[in-house]
């Protein structure tokens, strides 16, 4: 599946290997590269506690229908995250 490795076309700054979670195609397995530190601290802590922090693995299960929230699995749980937050999580896909 080579398509997983091509950066999403919408991503403006695809020079670095990372893309945002929002742009990840369905089926992407990735390591989290960074979580925007500009986010509300409470939200950042919550994300950390559900396993969304640098170097953790996640799988992008579904693109949200009609631009809705993306569906990912982190550790043993499946979450959906809306665009504003998914945009601020950068990931680097692994094969």
């Amino acid at each position: 599946m080579t398509s997983m490795l091509t950066p999403a076309m919408t991503s403006s700054d695809s020079q670095d290997a990372a893309m945002t979670l929002w742009d990840a195609p369905k089926g992407t397995v990735a390591l989290i590269a960074s979580v925007d530190t500009g986010l509300d601290p409470q939200v950042q802590l919550r994300l950390r506690d559900i396993g969304i922090e640098p170097a953790r693995q996640l799988i992008c299960l579904q693109r949200g229908p009609f631009g809705g929230p993306v569906v990912i699995s982190v550790a043993d749980t499946v979450y959906s995250l809306e665009q504003p937050i998914a945009r601020r999580i950068r990931i680097s896909p692994t094969v």
Partner: peptide, 10 residues
Amino acid sequence: QQDMPFILEL
């Protein structure tokens, strides 16, 4: 008050 993002466990 501040808005929190939509994060929902399935």
